[in-house]
């Protein structure tokens, strides 16, 4: 038995790697969790379908969906790209129009007061109900999906840009005005950069909505696109293909969302400084 007490460093030193090993293990678990959970979900689905003998025209098992995906892969890819194209075209229009209208709304009280009720009323219309009119006007083709994507997604952009502009701190406005800044100076130097995080926040919502819009319109008013593929496959009672198309939609949607978010982080890193967001 040793009478010599351990030196302080002996007390402290082993504690540090022990903690970091636990932390590392936890981080590894966190990194693996999404994969494990996703795999588990599909595994459970597969097992349930087999055990309960669910017919594949009701709910196909993932293995059946995978077979359908392999069989129809060219159609799936072709129609996915068509849908992507429709969504991005509509979204692009919505961004351009939304920013312009948002700037007008944020800059002028008169424009805001006058057009807000109209905008809210328009936004309240479910856009599915507009598709028949679009078909009436433009016929079946690429126009209805693009326009539906546009109509459904511009509203959040307008509101967010206008909010960013109208919530400028009065003090900074005073600083600028006391320097002799014009209204345009204040918009360009303060209003627009300030509304960027609001804009990008709304883009994530808007792109998801645009995607919904184009798929809805495709299923009624187009000969191409995933929406149309689903409509035809379900008419043929080809349920595995319907599900394969749904999964293609999910993958495409996630890709679009992630791309928007990456763009957001690049453009407005300064706004993402909260500890809450970091943790």
């Amino acid at each position: 038995m040793s009478a010599i007490p351990p030196s302080p460093s002996e007390f402290v030193a082993p504690a540090v790697p022990a903690v970091s090993a636990a932390t590392r293990r936890r981080n590894r678990q966190l990194a693996l969790a999404p994969w494990v959970f996703t795999l588990g979900f599909f595994l459970l689905w597969e097992v349930a379908c087999r055990a309960l003998k669910v017919p594949s025209y009701f709910l196909p098992a993932p293995s059946v969906i995978a077979q359908a995906s392999a069989q129809y892969w060219w159609q799936l890819v072709f129609h996915s790209f068509h849908t992507l194209w429709m969504t991005l075209a509509g979204f692009g229009l919505a961004v351009a129009f939304g920013i312009l209208l948002g700037l007008a709304l944020g800059a002028s009280r008169l424009v805001r007061a006058g057009s807000y009720p109209l905008l809210v009323g328009f936004n309240a219309i479910p856009k599915v109900a507009v598709v028949p009119i679009l078909i009436l006007w433009f016929g079946v083709g690429w126009v209805p999906p693009v326009l539906t994507a546009f109509l459904i997604s511009f509203f959040p952009i307008v509101v967010n840009v206008a909010t960013g502009l109208s919530t400028i701190e009065p003090e900074i406005e005073d600083v600028m005005r006391a320097l002799g800044a014009s209204k345009r100076d204040i918009m360009v130097k303060i209003g627009i950069p300030r509304s960027l995080p609001y804009l990008f926040g709304s883009l994530k919502v808007a792109i998801t909505l645009a995607y919904v819009g184009s798929v809805i319109a495709e299923s009624n008013a187009s000969r191409n696109g995933i929406g149309n593929l689903i409509a035809r496959a379900s008419a043929d009672f080809n349920v595995p293909l319907v599900f394969a198309a749904l999964i293609a939609l999910a993958i495409l949607g996630v890709v679009i969302y992630v791309l928007t978010e990456m763009l957001e982080n690049r453009m407005t890193g300064w706004a993402q400084r909260s500890q809450l967001a970091a943790g």
Binding site: E169, D174, V175, I190, P193, R194, L196, T268, A271
Partner: peptide, 10 residues
């Protein structure tokens, strides 16, 4: 200059 520094974060 005000109580709130009002610097622009970007």
């Amino acid at each position: 200059a005000f109580q709130n520094p009002t610097l622009l974060p970007w």
